[in-house]
Design a binder for these strands. Structure first.
Length: 399
RNA sequence: GGGGAGGUACCCAAGCGGCCAAAGGGGGCGGACUGUAAAUCCGCUGGCACCGCCUUCAAAGGUUCGAAUCCUUUCCUCCCCA
């Protein structure tokens, strides 16, 4: 996996195909690979969501495959297109971001993406570089190459139309601009999730219309989030971020639905199909397989040491339901007060949002101090060191 | 440009002068049960030292003892016609 290596044609194709949803058209990909050229592999990045989650890694890992085969990856930061915001999957128009936010997000993105990509083999471009220079005349000529019907046939738009939801005029330009990126860098292959199929195809179309060798569109499945139903996304809260605490990553993965196990293995790890099948044969309890998955992914984005700790933490906190050794430590947050209403303390420690919530949890017997449930809504805590458990997931040592 | 329908809590959606901190569903959280999860059952779900007070029903004003509900203006969305 690490570093470049040589594979013959069939092996290369096999590596590229693993886990993909569609390659359009597959023949063109074969031709391009056969040519022996160093290919331009494009991925467009939306700088609105700085925190990468496992959903993003699916595509990034595929890019990494291309890098390992010696090709050139070009990440395009959509600093210009973000003025529009990709309408894909959105029922609402997005607010535009300002320059500082975009730059900050792009930086965060880069640091996280290089956990997967080979920095040396990655080129980063900002699409304002060429898009901001397009004149109105050029834009008109560009948009003349596509019909309204063609653009509106896309699901996102047609659904919104049907549902009487708004579509702003500028949103329909988005696919065109993304397509223009492909022209600007002369892409050979563009990657994306299946939700990007339409945009990728428009890129292919435009390249052809402008006399370039059209790009191959390669789509990866969109992985379902921890709820097992909707796609993984930060706004839905069903995500596992790669920069999250090892304990969190491990814990979240352990709470995913069983049905997703196989898919996660294929798209998020390097286990081969055979190895995965072996695991399923070897273990009866999906929990054990999940632990292997959680361990592998935690290790991938943190370290082996962290992964071991996270696994231990999980075992003590959830399997044995005892208090984890390395629970986060918190200092008594007051200078003069030596005792305080418990919900107030929880808020001041940043563990809860409101005292009302704390009061509710108390009423539900969800808060424990030194492993003893507190049921008194008016409970006063005294300064000193103690173990605090709130609900199932929050553990803290107050000192 | 003309006519009509709308904007309610995280989301969908009731309410159309007081009994509304606002039905119902979804989601989330907690408890039970488990394999950690799913499914199921029960409970909670604006804030505040909290049997009371404070801020919420697109925004700003107004009517009223009293407004999410009535009036005015503004902003936003959809539909039909041109």
């Amino acid at each position: 996996m690490k570093g470049g290596f040589y594979l013959n044609f069939d092996e290369s194709i096999k590596l590229i195909k693993r886990g993909t949803e569609e390659i359009i058209p597959f023949d063109d990909l074969e031709k391009k690979i056969k040519s022996g050229r160093k290919l331009n592999i494009k991925l467009g990045i939306d700088p609105t969501a700085p925190d990468l989650h496992l959903g993003h890694t699916v595509v990034l890992s595929k890019l990494r495959n291309f890098q390992d085969l010696g090709h050139k990856v070009i990440l395009i930061i959509g600093d210009f297109t973000t003025l529009i915001g990709d309408p894909t999957g959105k029922s609402k128009t997005r607010p535009a971001l300002n320059v500082e936010e975009i730059n900050k997000n792009a930086e965060t993105y880069k640091t996280q993406a290089f956990k997967i990509l080979d920095k040396e083999k990655t080129t980063i471009r900002y699409n304002s570089e060429w898009l901001s220079k397009i004149s109105l005349e050029e834009l008109i000529k560009l948009s003349a190459k596509f019909t309204v019907a063609r653009i509106l046939e896309r699901e996102t738009f047609s659904e919104r139309l049907k549902a009487n939801e708004p579509i702003s005029l500028h949103e329909i330009l988005y696919p065109l601009l993304q397509a223009y990126d492909s022209v600007a860098i002369n892409a050979d292959v563009e990657l994306g999730g299946t939700d990007q199929t339409f945009n990728l195809l428009i890129g292919r179309d435009l390249m052809e219309k402008m006399g370039l060798e059209p790009q191959v569109c390669l789509t990866m499945p969109i992985i379902a989030g921890l709820d097992g139903k909707q796609k993984m996304s930060k706004s839905l809260g069903n995500y596992v971020g790669i920069a999250e605490e090892p304990n969190t990553v491990f814990g979240k993965l352990m709470s995913m639905p069983d049905e997703l196990l196989r898919q996660y293995f294929i798209l998020l790890t390097d286990f081969t199909e055979d190895e995965i099948s072996m695991l399923f044969k070897k273990y009866d309890n999906p929990k054990d397989i999940k632990k292997i998955l959680a361990f592998d992914i935690t290790k991938r984005y943190s370290s082996e040491e962290d992964a071991i700790k996270a696994r231990e933490n999980f075992e003590t906190a959830f399997e044995k339901r005892s208090f984890p050794e390395d629970a986060a430590e918190y200092r008594w947050p007051y200078e003069s007060e030596n005792e305080v209403w418990l919900p107030k303390l929880l808020v001041d420690l940043g563990l809860l949002k409101s005292t009302s919530e704390g009061k509710r949890l108390l009423a539900q017997g969800a808060i424990e101090i030194n492993e003893e449930a507190i049921n008194d809504e008016k409970f006063i805590v005294k300064k000193g060191s103690f173990k605090l458990k709130v609900g199932r997931k929050i553990f803290a040592r107050v000192i």
